[in-house]
Design a protein around this nucleic acid. Structure first.
Length: 278
DNA sequence: AAACGCGCCTGCGGGC
DNA sequence: TGCCCGCAGGCGCGTT
């Protein structure tokens, strides 16, 4: 479900509550989400303070005073919320992190994940980049270092389709299926084009539009297609701004073309065949 | 090394 | 009403 903008929205919201808060304990009600959950997670963060929260791609990274980092991934259906301590658990509430704020307020961070493709883990902060979920991640979609030379280098050795490359977290991390279609539309690039055939202008357009689309989506609180909500309970408002995703058979906003739905690698891909002829 | 499919899960909507 | 199928915002792993 959540792609970079939804994860960033969630991160910014929980940060308001969690920064400088003390973790009391972590409860988990399942043995595994996508993978087995390390049982030590229940104890290792007890009485530690949350110093900093980062996001890398679709991962939320919570750094604590015991020099560990809590790693959260929301998978397809994960949803974070903040609730009063001891409020009633609902279906698919799998992880509850109880904490106390500097003002004495006791709250809980809740991970609800219907499909259980999400994950929670922890690792020593110092060697976080060696963690198996983090070590292969490419550059973040909103990183200032996302530049032409870097991407040109990665693209020139590949024959895969640009749509697949957009979803490859080892190249650029954070982009998922919705924003891949949107960014390619903004860039007027046909998703079936091979990455090693992209011109300099096309790559530069792509990089610019990655920034534009992702940051616009963040400003709008992300995209709600079905059930995604911001942690404050509001839906994301970027859906109204989507140009192609989910708009098959409808008219393109920029020309008279009709939006087409393709299947690329079993993933729905939306294009305007006129704007994205090449 | 790169490029595919598979499988992990639940739930929903459409067709019969 | 119910069953079956396909599909859904992700991604590591095994196989080619």
């Amino acid at each position: 479900m959540p792609e970079l903008p939804e994860v960033e929205t969630s991160k910014r919201y929980i940060e308001q509550f969690l920064l400088n808060a003390k973790i009391l304990n972590i409860q988990s009600y399942v043995c595994k989400l996508r993978w087995e959950i390390n049982p030590y997670i229940k104890k290792i963060f007890n009485n530690t303070t949350i110093l900093k929260i980062d996001r890398l791609g679709k991962y939320i990274l919570i750094n604590t005073s015991n020099k560990n980092t809590l790693i959260l991934h929301l998978g397809m259906s994960g949803y974070l919320s903040i609730n009063d301590e001891n409020s009633k658990r609902i279906k698919h509430d799998h992880i509850i992190l109880n904490f106390v704020r500097a003002n004495g307020e006791r709250k809980s961070l809740i991970l609800n994940d219907q499909r259980r493709f999400g994950h929670i883990d922890f690792y020593c902060t110092f060697s976080l980049k060696k963690h198996f979920l983090i070590k292969n991640l490419g550059i973040d979609g909103l990183s200032k270092s996302l530049k032409y030379n870097l991407i040109k280098k990665k693209f020139s050795m590949k024959t895969t389709l640009i749509k697949n490359a957009m979803l490859d977290q080892k190249i650029i991390c954070g982009i998922g299926n919705i924003y891949a279609s949107e960014i390619l539309f903004y860039s007027k690039i046909n998703p079936l084009k091979k990455v090693n055939s992209l011109s300099k202008n096309e790559i530069n357009a792509l990089l610019l539009n990655i920034k534009i689309v992702l940051s616009k989506a963040v400003l709008n609180g992300g995209t709600t297609i079905k059930d995604y909500k911001q942690p404050n309970g509001k839906v994301g408002y970027f859906k109204q701004k989507l140009k192609v995703y989910g708009r098959d058979k409808l008219k393109c906003f920029d020309c008279n073309g009709i939006i087409l739905k393709l299947n690329i690698n079993k993933r729905a891909t939306y294009i305007c065949p006129v704007c994205q002829k090449n």
